[in-house]
Computed example of a mutant assay.
Amino acid sequence: MSTRSSAAPTSSAPPSVQSALPPHGEGAAGDRFIQHNLEAAWPADLPAVDERVLLGAGRALLRADATGIGRTAWPQVFPPTGQAVTPAFATASFRIQAAIARRGTSPDTAVVHLVWAGTDRGGAFTDLRVTDWHFTRTSAKKGAATWTAQPRT
């Protein structure tokens, strides 16, 4: 006669811990996991139209900041200096991995959190870089609100 034990075997090994982030260097395939984790960590708190507008502006600002392309569209953030800007990151390797827009410290402020990857001028590739852009809501004519990017301090 045989008996079976329903008790689980005991082990001194710790349970396996799985990272919520994709492995380093996963490439674009890992971006959806980063986006999911960013959204889970900070649930949406803005109207969808505001979030859409802010995400577009935040992405454009980051691209302008990292690659130098499009800076003239943001004179309040990138004042004209009269000198050419050498981009810090190659346009071809620049990629936004994830982005969210959330309410700031007051109802009329917002922040766009971006996680991105790129190859710098020295040829070093880095992913999971984080940049925040802050915005202030201003009232335009006819009651429409607009979001204005704030210069970095």
Rank of each mutant, 00 (worst) to 15 (best):
74 W>S: 07
43 P>Y: 04
46 L>V: 08
60 A>C: 09
41 A>T: 13
64 A>K: 14
37 N>Y: 05
58 G>M: 11
49 V>Q: 08
66 A>P: 02
50 D>V: 01
60 A>L: 08
45 D>C: 06
73 A>E: 15
53 V>I: 14
65 D>K: 15
44 A>Y: 01
36 H>N: 12
68 G>N: 10
70 G>Y: 07
42 W>F: 09
56 G>Y: 05
47 P>K: 06
39 E>Y: 05
46 L>K: 11
72 T>G: 06
53 V>E: 11
42 W>Q: 14
74 W>G: 02
48 A>W: 01
38 L>T: 12
43 P>G: 08
36 H>P: 00
68 G>V: 11
59 R>H: 07
52 R>K: 14
37 N>A: 11
62 L>A: 03
50 D>K: 09
53 V>T: 14
36 H>Y: 12
39 E>S: 15
45 D>L: 05
66 A>C: 08
73 A>N: 13
74 W>D: 07
68 G>I: 11
57 A>E: 15
62 L>I: 03
46 L>H: 05
38 L>Y: 06
51 E>I: 00
48 A>M: 04
74 W>A: 04
53 V>C: 01
51 E>D: 13
54 L>D: 06
55 L>G: 09
71 R>A: 04
41 A>Y: 04
69 I>K: 11
37 N>Q: 15
72 T>E: 14
52 R>V: 00
63 R>I: 03
49 V>D: 11
41 A>M: 09
73 A>M: 11
64 A>F: 01
62 L>F: 02
60 A>D: 15
66 A>L: 08
51 E>Q: 15
51 E>P: 07
58 G>L: 05
53 V>M: 12
57 A>K: 14
71 R>Y: 00
38 L>H: 06
38 L>N: 11
48 A>S: 11
48 A>G: 05
60 A>P: 06
65 D>H: 13
50 D>R: 09
48 A>C: 01
72 T>N: 11
66 A>E: 07
42 W>R: 15
52 R>S: 01
55 L>E: 07
54 L>A: 05
47 P>F: 00
42 W>M: 11
53 V>Q: 15
46 L>N: 06
70 G>E: 05
39 E>F: 00
70 G>P: 04
61 L>I: 04
51 E>C: 01
71 R>S: 04
72 T>M: 04
48 A>I: 09
51 E>L: 02
62 L>G: 01
69 I>E: 09
63 R>A: 00
49 V>W: 00
71 R>I: 01
42 W>K: 14
61 L>N: 09
36 H>M: 12
72 T>D: 13
60 A>G: 09
61 L>E: 09
67 T>I: 07
57 A>G: 07
69 I>Q: 10
50 D>S: 10
67 T>P: 09
58 G>W: 11
51 E>T: 13
56 G>L: 03
58 G>D: 12
52 R>A: 07
57 A>M: 13
49 V>S: 12
57 A>V: 03
41 A>G: 15
71 R>D: 02
39 E>K: 14
58 G>I: 08
67 T>R: 10
38 L>A: 13
67 T>V: 07
48 A>D: 10
58 G>Q: 13
48 A>Q: 13
43 P>W: 10
38 L>V: 12
65 D>I: 03
71 R>C: 04
39 E>V: 06
48 A>E: 13
67 T>L: 02
59 R>I: 04
73 A>W: 02
56 G>D: 08
45 D>Q: 11
50 D>Y: 05
36 H>V: 04
